[in-house]
Every structure is written in structure tokens, then in C-alpha cells.
Design a protein around this nucleic acid. Structure first.
Lengths: 140, 140
DNA sequence: CCTTGCACCTCTAGTCGCTAGAGGATGTAG
DNA sequence: CTACATCCTCTAGCGACTAGAGGTGCAAGG
């Protein structure tokens, strides 16, 4: 069998070397076999798992959620209700985040547009930050 | 002069008590005078500063950026170019984040919509995560 | 065979922006 | 005077890594 070093695994999966070791440490990835000289030796399945993890992380899933998703993946006879629930929760979170970032964008645009590029005492950026009442947000 | 306790400062500014102490520790807020019994005693100006900080944090500015903004605020004769640059950088960052969250939303929606609520081996949520090629993202 | 030099190993500590808790002192209302 | 809330300092923890020290393994060139 072909031995995949951690560096190679990193290149193939897009997960950084220390991050792979970290994932092993927190139990997201099971410890691989070792070479004579105690070096980690991965198999193709481990690469897939790392790709799975990386993709899930890119989508903003937390490590705990990924742990659940991986358990589901390992047991394909289970109902996918949990996976669905996790994805739905994540979707709601993302939608919420988009909403607040949009509000934020509006406010930042007003700040930047209002800046006359003069002295600080006329600067809207500082002014808006100092006086919450002037801005688009309502008082949380 | 009226003495404002840390709890009162917290209520007035919306910044939690331990967070106020934390801000003092990292030098964002200068150490206030103390009462006979060694308790912090704030002035109205400190409350304004806390509101400024809170608002900036809500807008997602990093503590380092806020430090700069506060220095600018303290010296109103300076050009507001730095404040402007900080706000613009933040705006670009926010716009970038909105873009990636939108892409993410599309992908999550596809995952959730494709889930037939059956067994895991037919679940698109798991499938999409396992096979990056199927999803909307290009390989970074 | 030996050296060079990169990739690997473990371990600890640092990042950011807080938050939680222990264990004790102070201030205030009844 | 006694409860009780609030304050104090200090340390440790969170998530998800990242950086660095100090040492070992391994493949290729001379």
C-alpha cells in the first residue's frame, strides 16, 4: 500500500499540517498508522475525511457539528434527520449573519461617504462611533 | 463630583463589567480613580468612551483599530485620513464577507433542499460535504 | 559513506476578545 | 448589625487554530 505522509496529505486535502495533527488531537481524525521512524502514514480514506472536514469548516460548521456529521457519514443506514437539522441551523445562522452584515455595510458606507477628508473633529467616522444615536442601528 | 461605579458604568454604556475591566487591562480605557475602598470610580467621559468602544465593536472593528480610532478622537486636529482608511478597510472586509456568506447560503440551501429525509446514504448534505466537486464553490 | 537540508516529531505557549469562577473585601438598606 | 449585592484580584477556559523550540527521520548529491 502507498504511504501518504502528513505533508502529502496536507497538499491533497488543503488542510495545513499542524491543523491535521490538531484534528487528530481533538479526535476528529483517528490516529493513522506510523512508519518505522514514527511518522504518520495516511490512507486515501483519511484524505477524503480531511476534505470533508475542510469543506464543512469552509461552510462555517463548528467542529462539534462536524463530529456529528462524520459519525453520520460512518453509519449510512441512519436517518439523515440530524444532518438535515445541522445544515438547517447553519442556514438560519448564515441568513442572520448576512442580515446584520448588510445593516453594518449601510452604516459603514454612510460613515465613509460622510468623511470630508478634513480634520478629525469634522470626521463622520469618529462622530458616528461616538454618538450611537446618529447611526442606523436602534439601541440593541 | 458624582461617582459612577463600574456596575453603573456597565448599565449606562452597555459594556459588561468584566469587559470594562478587561478593556482597562489591555489599555483601551485608562485606569479610573478609585474610592477609599479601592473601587473604580468613573466619570461621564469614560462612559462616552465605553459607548464609542461598544459601538465600534458592534461594527466589527478590531481592538487594535479601535485603539487607533480612540487616539484620533483624543486629538481632533489630526487629519481624519487614518479613520477613513480604517473604516474603508472594514467596509471592504464586510463586503467580502457578505459575498462569501451569500455563496454559502446558496450551497446550504441546495443541501437542505436536496435532502430527501431518508437514510444518510441518500442525503445530499453529507454527499455535498464529502465531494467538494459537486458544490457551487470552485476549489479555492 | 557522509553531509546537507527539508520534512517530520512532540510539546508548550500564544492568538483574539472575552467569560467564568474562586475567594475575599466593601458598601448599603433594613 | 446583619444580610446581601456589588466590588476587588487573580487564574483558567473558550474555539480553532498558529507559532516556535528543540529534536529525529529520510532522500539525494558529492
Amino acid at each position: 500500500m502507498k504511504k501518504i505522509t502528513i505533508g502529502e496529505a496536507s497538499r491533497q486535502s488543503g488542510v495545513k499540517v499542524p491543523t491535521i495533527r490538531y484534528y487528530e488531537g481533538i479526535g476528529l481524525l483517528s490516529a493513522p498508522s506510523r512508519s518505522e521512524g514514527n511518522q504518520r502514514s495516511y490512507e486515501p480514506a483519511d484524505i477524503s475525511r480531511l476534505v470533508f472536514i475542510r469543506h464543512a469548516r469552509e461552510l462555517g460548521f463548528e467542529v462539534d457539528a462536524i463530529r456529528t456529521l462524520l459519525m453520520l457519514q460512518d453509519d449510512p443506514n441512519q436517518s439523515c434527520a440530524s444532518a438535515d437539522a445541522i445544515a438547517k441551523a447553519r442556514l438560519i445562522d448564515v441568513e442572520q449573519r448576512i442580515r446584520s452584515l448588510m445593516a453594518l455595510k449601510v452604516e459603514l458606507e454612510a460613515m465613509v461617504a460622510g468623511c470630508g477628508h478634513g480634520r478629525v473633529d469634522q470626521c463622520r467616522v469618529i462622530e458616528v462611533l461616538a454618538d450611537h444615536g446618529q447611526c442606523a442601528h436602534s439601541h440593541h
